[in-house]
Design a protein around this nucleic acid. Sequence first.
DNA 1: AAAAATTTTTAAGCTTACTTAAAAATAGTT
DNA 2: AACTATTTTTAAGTAAGCTTAAAAATTTTT
Lengths: 219, 219
Amino acid sequence: MSVAIENFVKAIYKNGKRDHNDTKPGNIAKELGISNAAATDMAKKLATKDLLHYEKYQELKLTDKGTKMALNVVRKHRLWEALLFKLFDMSLHDIHREAELLEHQTSDLLANKISEYLGNPKFDPHGDPIPNANGEITTVDTSIPLSNTEEGKTYTISRLMSDDKEFFDFCAQNGLKYGNSVLISKQFSNNKMTQILIHNNTILLNQDFTSIIYVNETN
Amino acid sequence: MSVAIENFVKAIYKNGKRDHNDTKPGNIAKELGISNAAATDMAKKLATKDLLHYEKYQELKLTDKGTKMALNVVRKHRLWEALLFKLFDMSLHDIHREAELLEHQTSDLLANKISEYLGNPKFDPHGDPIPNANGEITTVDTSIPLSNTEEGKTYTISRLMSDDKEFFDFCAQNGLKYGNSVLISKQFSNNKMTQILIHNNTILLNQDFTSIIYVNETN
DNA sequence: AAAAATTTTTAAGCTTACTTAAAAATAGTT
DNA sequence: AACTATTTTTAAGTAAGCTTAAAAATTTTT
């Protein structure tokens, strides 16, 4: 299966996990930086390969086979991120970019070797869960976006759901890192802004950021 | 530049280093597993990109630009081999196969990180020299094939120049490994066979193998 | 030096993964 | 409910990297 196909099913998988749940060709096209026409073509083709269900004008739905393929690629991506993060001093954004390419050129054998070397980690450096060799995510995700937190409570950063360089640069500068603690000092009523205290610094975040930073309540 | 192009210049580079020195399209085609016609087409195309000099029916000669590209790919290949060899318990053949794919999806930045992590090694696990970030091979190679050794002398294995699984399996079984010592117990007159002593085992090697196992005389 | 064998080149054609442009259907707005 | 805007689909076309078949040139053998 080609890189284009792997990226296509991965994009459907990722979009299907999001709030909007828009997996129509146009959204997948946007995710992949290709034309809508190309996405429609590809969707039809992958339907014949039993990777997804295609019905005109409807959302694209991965079959079990398609989901398995997507999870296999996601697994390799996250294992690479975990490995590069451990071995090298590189920004999360750079690591992501390398993993984006390496994920398609990695045998299952190598993926298993990486996993084993790392002690079969359950999460990558963004806090995203790493599917196991069977394509299963066994961890239960109880995290919520920062935008949904309560004023005065303390949380632990569990996921940074982004590919964006500016976002990661901002995070790196402000100690927003997987595992770190944040206190919600002020939650503005409309949830459009959140003020947090981290490392004795007060930061004001807008919804662009509070919707992709996920946290768990600290016990 | 595409994977196909990187592999093409790499094949010319490798063939140019061998005894036969046959870099006509047919030989490159054989190396890459494509048709002669495809190789001729590609050669013409790469000439327009100033990667090689093309003259009908003549050997293909890399330009400086083409050589630089080839060495950059070779560098990444050998760095990956060195890294995978260090981190994981995998056969040299499997490592080679993974590196064959990863080499094309590796930024210069990542290559430098791998190199740094490994202490800027000068050789990969086969004993092949690793070009530096400028595409220069600074080491001097004094090694000779086993077929050219002298009876009674002791040598150190310096390079195993092959991609072949059977060869590597044989090597692994018999302790034929980069850095190991061999005594030439009998060199048959026509050089078609060589009998060596390694790890207290006597092995008879034919020329297929003695021409790709390189050694240095032990001081 | 001719004849035979091989290699290289040319030519035509295929598949993949795109593109743009226009038609068709859906979704949003008044 | 009708009009508008957007999205999806269809259709036609392109570039990369191959293929096979046949012509042209080179190389090898006798």
